[in-house]
Write a protein that binds this DNA or RNA. Sequence first.
DNA 1: AATTATATGTGTATTTTTTACACTTGTCAA
DNA 2: TTGACAAGTGTAAAAAATACACATATAATT
Lengths: 230, 230
Amino acid sequence: MYGSDIMDVKNKKYKNQGIHVITAIFTVEQGITKVLLIKRKNAPFEGDWVLTGGALYNDENLEDGAKREIYEKTGISDIDIKQFKAFGRVDRSPVMRMVAVGFIGVIDSKRVKVLRETENTSNADWFPIDKIPPLGFDHEEILQEALLELQKRIVNSNILKSLFPDGVTMPELQKVYEAILNKKFDRRNFRKKMLSLDLIEDTNKSEQFEGNRPAKKYKFKRKIVDKNIF
Amino acid sequence: MYGSDIMDVKNKKYKNQGIHVITAIFTVEQGITKVLLIKRKNAPFEGDWVLTGGALYNDENLEDGAKREIYEKTGISDIDIKQFKAFGRVDRSPVMRMVAVGFIGVIDSKRVKVLRETENTSNADWFPIDKIPPLGFDHEEILQEALLELQKRIVNSNILKSLFPDGVTMPELQKVYEAILNKKFDRRNFRKKMLSLDLIEDTNKSEQFEGNRPAKKYKFKRKIVDKNIF
DNA sequence: AATTATATGTGTATTTTTTACACTTGTCAA
DNA sequence: TTGACAAGTGTAAAAAATACACATATAATT
């Protein structure tokens, strides 16, 4: 067998490869986890919905490329994203060999004012994760894995930070966790657990009142935690 | 700003991209965690050590490509590997834009009989992870992240399976965990923990005796576990 | 001003899991 | 038969997770 060197790219076996950066952008509204999908304007998969993403430029790093795509399609520029997996099935793109690097991000949907029309996309919308239409490319697979990653990350990273730019109360946070993990928690134990995870910190503010005792506001720390089990 | 469509690859901004598949292959010998490095024969980084890997073919999936590279350079064909991260710094390769998809794998070093000379590599060797020479490309970064991934994976996957093709005893297993996690465990508690992780199962065999009570042999299950914390 | 409705905030007892720790058993060699 | 050696096992203590009930702050009502 013929060895492929790490730099041996003249060989036609390696020609015409490309790299996608794809982000599953999640939000939670009224206890429903949703993902941002964008409708394609051009072939292939014309008219199909896909995750936010596109081809990586040669002069940008992976995460920068993913953020540029997010900015171009949503106008959002300050979102924290986390890479989780590369997708490289031979036939994942019908045109040429493309490997996609997948990211996840979470954002407050109220901040996406204009879902912009771009050269290649017509419109965009939030879809509840249990009501996803058929997606183009291999984006259904990417979305499924993104969801699993999201479920892991809300426990040991500050991925939810972008969802609460103005701070968050415990009851709000609990609703979001329950939506994403699809599971109910006891109020008192949830609070204890959250504080022990060391992801958020107290502020001395409270929420605006609504006819009952106002909830304390917390905010996400900068620090990203990552825990081992053993 | 000009939008990059997911298929818009004619644009020169995306031309001449390529994909690497790189595997950090670990072993543990006498309580020392080691990684397999290969010496490059050609420019760039001629004479430098690098992790096992190379360019992905257009007709193979990511994991298949990584396994092909492993086979070509070590003769090993039945190793379980796990993808963990893509590396895409703009300047990670001096020749052209390459994105590397990183994998980890573990193998019994005794099974690597001939470290083959290939067209592009001269020789190969196992290096203790605290005595790594300067590596070519961004492989030092990849190796560091690979090690962290290995530490996570030995707890919630059967990544160590390939290290023990003929089964393993508890004391052997404990030495390996202690080497990889760089931490000592109590014998009785380690056993309890291992059994509760549901990664291994009893056989009715025992090891060959060495002047003391023979240890029971266990074997890794097929199943891959993956646990959440909440 | 007092009362009521509502959702927030907090503490404690119970169970489960993790940790710490010591003696018994099986084999080889003398 | 005995001694040396490493493997195997159980139990008590500590820590963490879970189950559970009452007190508190605000707005609205009287």
